[in-house]
């Protein structure tokens, strides 16, 4: 009932662990697979080892979740030793990558491709920049990064993860598709800040971070809706999906699959199974046999 095809990959259900939450080790991938996710995205890796920012790096309240972890990671070379390969784990794995410079995106993509992930996701939201502004904020820069990754990924499909912190996400998505992207992951966190009025300081060590959780959902739904009108490639709708109804809403906006990250915070690691059960309940009640019937229906 929930089975989908994403860029030729069969997923038992459309829920995908979003990058940045758990997904750090082989053992955590297995654990999330066992808890019902259709696929698992690894925490983003780049060409070097990074500690990330100090704490507080994340906190949540009232349906709002903030994080500024600063892209910590062991680096792609160390991860290669750790994981060995990614195509023989209990669940399809999406390898998330980034670099500081365009060439590094290509180099990391090549190394990631050697692990044989089901898909490569590209985090173009990295704050390190070659051209004065981040890669996600400019159609030409997004095209350059997409091209560099595609040239090194071989047959492995590539999804570009877009940021909502732009004037027009449609032109960025269009540019990624034109440069060969096989899918779009939308969206990354929205930029935000929380100040503790007693401490009179921003809570996050990095001061500015990304807003996720239910607060992000309307922004994500709007972005998926706009991207669906612009491109033909599939969309992994990510941002605030916590309940089955949120996943249905994403599909109605045009998503093929849904990313779940902060949802784990609210509902535990079993959130994947819970969301799937709730989706099926809704489908039965509304006599919907397959997600294809409702995909993008909000546009009609």
């Amino acid at each position: 009932m929930l089975q989908i095809k994403l860029c030729g990959i069969s997923l038992k259900n459309p829920t995908i662990l979003a990058s940045g939450i758990l997904g750090v080790t082989k053992e955590s991938v297995h654990r999330i697979g066992k808890s019902g996710a259709g696929a698992v995205t690894l925490k983003s890796l780049c060409h070097e080892e990074r500690d990330g920012f100090s704490n507080p790096a994340m906190f949540g309240y009232d349906g709002v979740f903030l994080n500024a972890v600063g892209l910590p990671g062991q680096g792609i070379d160390s991860a290669i030793k750790d994981f060995g390969r990614l195509d023989n784990l209990s669940v399809p794995v999406i390898g998330s990558i980034y670099g500081y410079r365009v060439e590094q995106f290509g180099q990391v993509a090549k190394k990631m491709a050697s692990l044989k992930p089901a898909m490569i996701e590209v985090d173009v939201s990295c704050p390190h920049m070659d051209y004065g502004k981040p890669y996600y904020a400019d159609p030409e820069l997004t095209a350059k990064v997409t091209g560099a990754v595609k040239a090194n990924a071989g047959r492995i499909p590539v999804s570009i993860k877009l940021s909502p912190n732009v004037y027009d996400i449609k032109e960025i998505a269009h540019s990624a598709e034109k440069s060969g992207a096989d899918a779009i992951t939308a969206i990354n966190a929205a930029s935000g800040m929380v100040i503790d009025i007693s401490a009179r300081k921003p809570i996050l060590a990095n001061k500015i971070g990304g807003v996720t959780g239910p607060a992000l959902k309307p922004i994500a739904v709007r972005c998926v809706y706009e991207i669906y009108e612009t491109v033909k490639i599939p969309i992994i709708g990510t941002g605030g999906v916590t309940y089955g109804k949120d996943a249905i809403e994403m599909v109605m906006a045009g998503a093929t699959a849904v990313g779940i990250g902060t949802g784990i915070y609210y509902r535990g690691i079993s959130v994947f199974k819970k969301v799937c059960d709730e989706m099926m309940q809704w489908m039965k009640k509304n006599k919907v046999k397959s997600l294809n019937e409702i995909r993008g229906c909000a546009h009609k």
Binding site: I21, L22, A57, M58, F59, V69, I264, Y265, G268
Partner: peptide, 15 residues
């Protein structure tokens, strides 16, 4: 640890 509530994955000891 970064979060303390099971999200960041930094404190994994095996599974």
């Amino acid at each position: 640890m970064a979060c303390g509530f099971g999200i960041c994955g930094k404190c994994m000891i095996n599974d």
